[in-house]
Amino acid sequence: MTQLELSGITVRFGGHTALNNVDITVSTGSITGLIGPNGAGKTTLFNVTNGLLRPNEGTLKFGDADMTALSPYRRAKLGLGRTFQRLELFPSLTVRENVQVAAEIRGEWSSGSNNSANIKKNVDRALEITNLRDSGSKNVSEIPTGKARLVELARSLVQEPKLLLLDEPASGQNDNETSEFADILRSLNKEGMSIFLVEHDMSLVMNVCDKIFVLDFGSLIAEGTTAEIQGNPVVIDAYLGGKSG
């Protein structure tokens, strides 16, 4: 079963082609990784996926629904969640309020009840999963980056997304935090959430991903399991530059 299907995605900025005819599928229930050198177009691909950017060409399907023409908030309603590489928290709200407002927004469009008890339950659960219970009253501008990434995750979790896009969740986290993060991802995945992950920290990617796509200069250059990718000379070349000598 396919949760997300991008076909023929092309994005041009002026004369520069940021994404060139990219096809990616994320199957339901998987943790899929997207890697590639700096400037390869990974964040652009995420922006296209959640609707902040319209592709020049190509179509996007979410489950069976064609979402190419949908605005970001409609895609959210379909069950698409996302975190950001450059943190996009709400600094005028506390940690808890950041998560709460997400739950409240969801309450407005979900079919379920949006009474305050329900919202509180959802928020508590998300804070529990992300180990943020004790930081609830802190202002998000005061917490370190590693924690802030968790707040973004918690904020997405209350939406109960079918597919979660994570944009470099481990950057700014220390090794301990990254390993905790990996555990959280695995347990979320066990509960049935599909995850699509852009990450530079290979220890995280190689540990949690079922399948990996590699992007270079806006084009897909490889896809496969972790072992396949690690042994793939094309990928190593992409990271280290052309063969020396």
Binding site: N50, G51, L52, S71, P72, Y73, A76, K77, G81, R82, F84, E88, L89, F90, P91, S92, L93, E97, Q100, V101, A102, E104, I105, R106, W109, R155, S156, Q159
Partner: peptide, 20 residues
């Protein structure tokens, strides 16, 4: 809170499903 969210980060608000 939704107003604050919209003010702080339109991109995140839209991503969370807010009809801005």
């Amino acid at each position: 809170r939704q107003l604050s969210a919209m003010k702080d980060s339109p991109a995140a608000s839209a991503t969370l499903g807010l009809n801005m």
